[in-house]
Simulated scan of single mutants.
Amino acid sequence: MSQPSINLHGAVDLSALARPAQPGPAAPAAPGGPATEAPIVAEVTEATFQQTVELSMRVPVVVEVWASYAQGPSQVLAKVATDYGGRFHLARVDVDTSPQIAQAFQVQAVPTVVAIVRGQPIPLYQGDYPEDQLRAVLEEVLRVAAQAGVTGTVSGGAPEEEAAEPEPVEPPLPPLHAEALDAIEREDYEAAADAYRRALKENPADHEATAALAQVELIMRTASAGGLQAVTAAADSPLTDVGAHLAAADAEVAAGQHAAAFDRLLAVVRATAGDDREEVRKRLVEYFEIVGTADPAVADARRNLASALY
């Protein structure tokens, strides 16, 4: 998988702003079906945010948190959203008028862009991305959304004569991938991991299964690790305390702090040897699969890892 892969559980809690209905098992939806009545790009406030989260059950949603003092919303993102013809809904949030939304997304800089799929937030990036990298990120959002059964469109997309033309139907997921996603929906991550491992046993070159297994294992490791408290716990630990720094790096990746996790484990690689170093190297490679090559931090970390090892 050449695109950035994403932790399905995101890094923030939207429950204070919206309470969407609990989704059932993800059912594949055919692209080109009836569109949801919604524009491609819309301004969203705290009063309308619940509808936006509910829309994410049917259509992938990309949220751009912007501010007037930082040159306003991105015109490049709006252009790309229009080019995609309604395959995702772009929700723009003014941080000045909707601070509670910004707080829920843990916004530290503007612009911040986050996706929502089936009510789950997915941290994407901060700052301005060039159009080619932006498209790579959005392709990954659409891929993850499709795996979750969210393939609807919004009605403000393609012109009627284009929308009427049948589009190719995406092939169904391989059986073991579908089994894994069903397990994820019911939060049985052990079963999901087992399904992905069996998929890899059948086809060791199944890159999608490799990346998805890494994500599921990250979810299982961080479920009982106390979140970002692991980062605090590792603050005074020597670099040779591999367990403490692996737990802290897991928490950072789950929170979307990819560069911090890479830097942490690269420092541990340089400070260790033998089995400890190999364990950390393998964890870094898993992170590269999870984050994906579209994130510039991955390319930098790969080069630094090679330098540290050789």
Rank of each mutant, 00 (worst) to 15 (best):
A230Y: 00
A211Y: 12
G256V: 04
E140L: 11
D188H: 11
E202L: 11
D263H: 02
E252S: 05
E252W: 05
T210D: 13
V216W: 10
T232I: 08
T210V: 14
P204W: 09
G227D: 00
V150Y: 03
V137G: 01
P159E: 00
N203R: 14
A244Y: 04
F262R: 00
A244I: 07
P175C: 01
A211Q: 14
A233R: 11
H245C: 10
L173A: 14
A195G: 06
T240N: 05
A199V: 03
A251N: 05
Q229H: 12
A235D: 11
Y189D: 12
A214G: 08
L228S: 05
E185G: 15
E187D: 13
T232V: 09
E252P: 01
D194E: 12
A163W: 07
P174Y: 02
Y189C: 09
P175Q: 01
G243C: 05
V253N: 04
A178E: 14
P175S: 05
R264K: 03
A260R: 10
V253D: 05
H258L: 10
P174E: 12
L181D: 14
A249T: 02
P174S: 07
S155F: 01
I219N: 12
V216S: 05
A195K: 06
V144Y: 07
N203D: 15
R143Q: 09
H207Y: 10
Q229Y: 05
D241N: 10
A195R: 08
R221W: 08
E187Q: 15
L200Q: 05
G243Q: 11
A255D: 02
A158E: 14
A233C: 01
E161G: 00
A223K: 12
A183G: 05
E202G: 08
A145H: 06
K201W: 11
A192D: 09
I184R: 14
V242K: 11
S224C: 04
N203L: 10
R221I: 03
G152C: 00
E179F: 02
A214V: 09
T222D: 06
A261D: 04
E190T: 13
N203T: 10
G156F: 04
L200P: 04
I184E: 15
A183W: 04
A211I: 11
P204A: 06
R264N: 02
A183F: 03
H177F: 11
S224W: 07
K201P: 00
A193E: 11
A178I: 01
M220G: 09
H245S: 08
P175E: 01
P171D: 07
Y196S: 02
I184C: 08
A199I: 02
A211T: 13
P166T: 13
Y196T: 04
E165R: 15
V169N: 09
E167Q: 15
Y189T: 10
L239W: 13
L138E: 01
L181G: 12
P238N: 07
P204E: 11
E170I: 10
L218T: 04
V144C: 02
V242R: 12
V216D: 08
E185L: 13
V169L: 14
A193P: 07
R264A: 04
V231M: 03
E165C: 08
A261V: 03
G227H: 03
E190C: 00
E185S: 15
E140R: 15
D263C: 01
V169A: 14
L246P: 04
A209G: 03
L228M: 13
V253I: 15
D236P: 01
A233W: 00
E160M: 13
A193R: 11
G226W: 07
E161P: 09
H245M: 09
L246D: 03
D206Y: 08
R186Q: 14
